[in-house]
Design a protein around this nucleic acid. Structure first.
Lengths: 199, 199, 199, 199
DNA sequence: CAGTAATCGAGACGGTACGTCCCGTCTTTAT
DNA sequence: ATAAAGACGGGACGTACCGTCTCGATTACTG
């Protein structure tokens, strides 16, 4: 499926699985540390303790490498608590945990910024971004089917309203987002900022 | 005030004013087109039709150059319509217009992404970002003083709730934001996504 | 004797004889075509249709491989016609034929040029070069014993006088040397260039 | 005239004359030390203490660089002593001195060996080799006009007979050639190896 | 007649060097 | 003093090989 997949065992020395992992890990680290432009296959090789040829044997350039490394970051798992509030809280809690436990919080701004002027990256990343939003869309759709939300609601815009505040906070203020403190953002999205009291 | 200020007229040939403008314009163009990393003083000079020395005579590196160019992008002007809804609509309309009419829509993601791993840029850009949010904070404070909002509201989080959806949309979907269509996002922020009907 | 000798038949798969020949032939071809530096064991393997391991199993590096390949080129056979002129003509005719029929004409300049800055190659090649001159030395010695030449003649210098013109021609002008046309060079060496009429 | 010529003084910083010299000197040294293949622009730059760009700004590749460096080695100056023997002795003495005082003795075998499999180098070097033989041709022509040599003599072959022994000696035995000891080779060429007594 | 052991092809691996490109600095002449 | 032009040292990158290595498959002797 992915570009760097280990091939079926044919003749010759098999590809190193350790190298594979080390390369993907180093890629993610470097995207977070130095950005997409400063990233290069040579640098990935250096960081991962692998020769350049070993990287190029698997990925033709840094672009598919970054795409694959990004795709291995954990995604949201769709919950089903029977009501929208709890579903959204569960999803945003997962999201906050991922931001806390993986490099995603620093990788995402970098890639978003790069997408603004790199159509090729943009084209490859868009489906992944869409896939990562899917669990939220599904939760909203279930809410509609349960009549918690009106049927003509704009689902995409709703996702923006739910995720936007957290994403913006991550982007510009670099502030930590407490997994235990996402309820207020869910309530703000569902009922408006009147509910948004200081904590 | 700014780094590239023209000096007082002394002996010798005076500095070219056209060059000054051309440099700042080229800088903004290049940030939008190729990003911050690919930007370089040499490239700015090439694009603006000026020699490298002419740029270096005014700015010691690309960093203050970018900062100054960014600072010249238009900011939000604080309105006062006497009620929060209209203030927010006016502000978001301005924001949408700026996104439409200036390179900001592409410059902002680039710089935000760069800030994620460039503390120096981050330190210089943070005050500007804060200043750009100030009109929103003020509008909210006026709403509190008018008792439109409870006094213990989290102002910063509120700004995130208001701006976040639009910013996210700009960042990830690259979707155009219609200046005439910001009302629904204001209402969604104030009263929740139940109000967020498809248009 | 040689480095690549086939081992005594023991257990296991025996070494391929065809591979052996193909490797030596390819080596000589490549020395002639691309020179000594551009030559590599990998390249020899590629050209001879053999895996690299098969070459390395027989020769530890390209150096002994080249030496052995060179040693298999035909050498001069000492004639004895009873007089110096006919002996030299026979020898030079052989030489011209070898130049015409084998890659020697292109291999020799390459190796000579390499010897100028490669002491290791030089040390291994010098005995072979000396051996190839031996028949000429012997012919001259017989001429001395027959009183065709004075006893205090400088044998080595004489060989240079005899071979030098042909070698120089081979090296710099790349001109073909006609086996039927060596008599004039023998006469020129023996009696001086007064005898060297245009043909 | 040559590829690396310093350009006419226009705008901009002028090219460094020291760098020019250092590059050509380093080129000649390296040809003598490591050969033509191991030579590279990068290596020349390293040896001459100059950046690679500085070399590439003047010569597009190592080939014209080597050609120009070679062309600056001293050439034979045509004497005119009124008789062939003294002319040839003077020429060969010059040749021996050049071999002793310059890197030519090691450069020439390298380039000759390379020419055997590099048509491009061969094409560029042939005219220079021809030019270096010209003084000998002229001396022979004068001898013909003075009736010292028959009119139908083969001039090119004569040059080979005269130079060949020395060149061969230089190539294969690496032996030093004493400038004071060239007379015997001249006599051997003119009157045959009977005159070639040990010294 | 199996079993063992060396050979063979294929190809992954770390390493090295190259030519290209571009940068920021420096040095010139011309306004 | 400023401006344009361009040479300079330096550094990083992607490419291309090399020699070594690890595999599975093949092939002959040997127990």
């Amino acid at each position: 499926m992915s570009a760097g997949t280990l091939p079926s065992p044919g003749p010759g020395r098999p590809r190193s699985v350790e190298a594979h992992r080390a390369i993907l890990d180093a890629t993610l680290e470097l995207v977070a540390e130095v950005g997409f432009d400063q990233l290069s296959v040579a640098r990935v090789a250096r960081r991962s303790g692998v020769s350049k040829a070993t990287v190029y044997r698997r990925w033709p350039s840094k672009l598919p490498l970054v795409i694959e490394a990004f795709s291995e970051l954990p995604t949201l798992e769709a919950p089903d608590n029977g009501n929208l509030v709890d579903d959204l809280i569960a999803l945003l809690r997962q999201f906050a945990e991922i931001l806390r436990d993986t490099p995603l919080a620093r990788v995402l701004p970098v890639l978003a910024g790069e997408c603004a002027h790199d159509p090729e990256l943009s084209a490859l990343l868009a489906p992944q971004i869409k896939a990562r939003r899917a669990p939220l869309i599904q939760a909203l759709e279930r809410a509609v089917s349960r009549s918690e939300l009106p049927p003509d609601i704009d689902l995409e815009a709703s996702v923006d309203v739910i995720m936007g505040p957290l994403v913006t906070r991550m982007l510009f203020t670099g502030a930590e987002i407490e997994p235990d403190n996402v309820r207020r953002f869910v309530e703000a999205a569902l009922f408006g900022i009147n509910r948004l009291r200081s904590d």
